[in-house]
Design a protein around this nucleic acid. Structure first.
Ligand SMILES: [Mg+2]
Length: 231
DNA sequence: GCGACAG
DNA sequence: ATCTTGTCGC
């Protein structure tokens, strides 16, 4: 079993959530000093739900690195009432993802999330928030931008360009598949940007999304499909 | 006031 | 994120 740090309550209002983010962002470590020499295990997590049903489904998958073979999967389902508000996604998806993480047998070396890390209005998106609770190196890999500006990205897989918020670099727009829309990579916690980009690219298996995130997405939709219909 | 806006 | 049919391209 994997333990998480109960840094705060999840039963909060949007206003309280913002205050929590402002405090937590100071705790983020944005370098990769503590990442294990040989990274062996990478986790990926995602959420799914049905319209008109307040039950949310969360899944965490464990993949070997760099082979990208799934070795474990854990899931959790519960009701969610926190609304979707841009910038507060972690308060909607976080609680369930953490429960799924707690059921893992193997502790991952790095965890990848379907959302932003520090490329966020207050510098603490889903991946960063989860990194603090899990005390693990984490990376945010989002399909679309939340904040920031950037220039052109080379058309070939592997090219990327910095994502800026004012004068500071908050992430990178990375081409994970040639001639296909790039993904937005940013540091979550306990990792540097260069390393985060390298890991995301190393996790690629011919698809736009890195395997941990892609497999978690596929798995969570299977999980939701096999769940009993709501009353 | 207006546009932007992870999932 | 979900819902939903067809359509375009490799
Ligand atoms: Mg998702």
């Amino acid at each position: 079993m994997l333990t998480t740090k109960p840094l705060h309550s999840w039963d909060v209002t949007c206003r309280e959530a913002v205050a929590i983010q402002q405090v937590l962002r100071e705790k983020l470590i944005l370098c990769d000093d503590e990442i294990p020499a040989p990274v062996c295990w990478i986790a990926g997590a995602d959420i799914s739900y049905s319209r008109g049903d307040d039950r949310f489904f969360g899944v965490v998958v464990m993949l070997s690195y760099p082979a990208m073979e799934m070795t474990e999967m854990s899931s959790f389902s519960a009701r969610v009432s926190f609304p979707y508000v841009p910038g507060l996604l972690s308060f909607r998806e976080g609680p369930i993802l953490l429960k799924a993480f707690e059921k893992l047998k193997q502790r991952p070396d790095i965890a990848l999330f379907d959302g932003q890390g520090i490329a966020h209005p207050r510098g603490i998106g889903l991946a960063s928030h989860m990194g603090l609770f899990l005390d693990l190196p984490t990376i945010g890999c989002a399909k679309t931008k939340l904040v920031g500006s950037y220039g052109e990205v080379g058309a070939e897989r592997g090219s990327f360009t910095d994502l800026y918020h004012g004068d500071s670099v908050i992430g990178a727009v990375v081409r994970t598949k040639s001639r296909v829309k790039p993904v937005f990579v940013s540091q979550g916690h306990r990792i540097g940007l260069k390393r985060a980009i390298e890991v995301v690219l190393a996790c690629g298996k011919g698809y736009r999304l890195p395997e941990p995130v892609r497999q978690a997405h596929l798995a969570v939709n299977r999980f939701r499909a096999e769940a009993p219909a709501r009353d």
